[in-house]
Design a protein around this nucleic acid. Sequence first.
DNA 1: CGACCTTTTGAACGTATTCAACCGATGTGG
DNA 2: CCACATCGGTTGAATACGTTCAAAAGGTCG
Lengths: 258, 258
Amino acid sequence: MSAVLAFKPVPRTIYMSKAEAPSGARKFEVTCSSCNLRELCLPGALAAEDMARAENLVYARRRVKRGEALFQAGAEFNAVYAIRSGFFKTGLVDGEGREQVTGFFMGGELIGMDGIGTGTYHGSAIALEDSEVCILPYTLIEEMAREVPALQRHLHAVLAREIVRDHGVMMLLGSMRAEERLATFLINLSKRFVRRGYSASDFHLRMTREEIGSYLGLKLETVSRLFSKFQDEELIEVEQKHVRILDIAGLERVLAGK
Amino acid sequence: MSAVLAFKPVPRTIYMSKAEAPSGARKFEVTCSSCNLRELCLPGALAAEDMARAENLVYARRRVKRGEALFQAGAEFNAVYAIRSGFFKTGLVDGEGREQVTGFFMGGELIGMDGIGTGTYHGSAIALEDSEVCILPYTLIEEMAREVPALQRHLHAVLAREIVRDHGVMMLLGSMRAEERLATFLINLSKRFVRRGYSASDFHLRMTREEIGSYLGLKLETVSRLFSKFQDEELIEVEQKHVRILDIAGLERVLAGK
DNA sequence: CGACCTTTTGAACGTATTCAACCGATGTGG
DNA sequence: CCACATCGGTTGAATACGTTCAAAAGGTCG
């Protein structure tokens, strides 16, 4: 359908991990314990001793330029990725060509878990800005999860958290009206930015109206109209991709059905 | 909102596992290796020697009567359940009282994984007919996953499969029209019944139109109308909860946008 | 600077919802 | 065991919400 979402396989240069992370440099660069996203990430929430071992999970890093795929649906699965910086969307295309954005992901969040079990990624992940990810090879994760119970537990928690997140999206898509969906989306983004030390009320949308629409089960025109409406109601200020939330309580009131 | 979906906490008798499975009897009764759902279940797909160990995963069984909750949202998490017989719906209620059915589950399928990580179940599971489940205590799963790599891998696969399933539902809710949703639903049910040795074309719906509607993001009247429409088009025959698929290819054509 | 992509807004339209009435099935208590 | 109440399902008519089609303006990038 639309090439805009770009979830379909396209020929592109694959950034080899080796290129970014020469074996010599790696050990010094890759230190989860000093990463400021440590609290949010997979190796996070581990005791100091475990953390030291968990650092070996990160095989290397990889840079992904805006518009590029970190992985494509159907590609061979062998690693999960932790976002170190940047912003991604994940999504899939079905047999009839329908596209669906399944999520937006930022620093400290893990993507690629949909590949576990089948050996191929089920969906695609595309960078919405120049990004960098830590590569966590699945065989390493498996191994270490056996040896470090805290990591095992944490891994399960991360997988379960994704399931819970998905159920939230189902609620959004299945039971909310358009306004409620967009309000939920903005509140959710705001919360996630805050946890990362950014402003709760003032941020830059990395995705297009079409991508927001796909995620929320709406058309891009509807998303645009709703932004204008929220602006008229003085809940937010929008100028292109820049959003400023003026009245969080007001947005929450939208959720409560006015 | 509606008491119909019954996802809200209600006082009810909890069936104690001990009552169903006196410690003496248990060992003889609970044998995954002879269970006919073994292929689909968690201990499934393990080599004979691993299977013997994995059987210890099943702490006990529990019967759940139609209409009863296997677990409620917010209840303390300590086990995952494998459905041995019967039929369940899972769902949740948000802060505003919106209800969303997140899935329907049948023999051999696992539910309750949304409780991993947080210590409490995120959603509820309610039996749509008298059912029996195997109780897999999470601490046991953790332990054995460390010792039996095949089980570890299988567990991850089950969790990932749930994520993939959820993404499919997002696609359904976000990108499909009402007819396409119902056709997808029927085709999916049909496939799952076949794998369990039931007819692909002739089955009994355990859920109400309202529950189907909630799952598909539609109102019950719309679901009812669509059933009638499909019947008029000679794709199916419906009489109350009994469905007979007359033209699977026709249903698949509905998905393809006619 | 020019081509293309993204966003906005209007007007007409269509799909699914809402409200309402009715029927049949199911289950309970007298 | 039947009567009656309740629940689940169907269908019609009016309505509403979000979509579609269209045009134009504003950004962005090579």
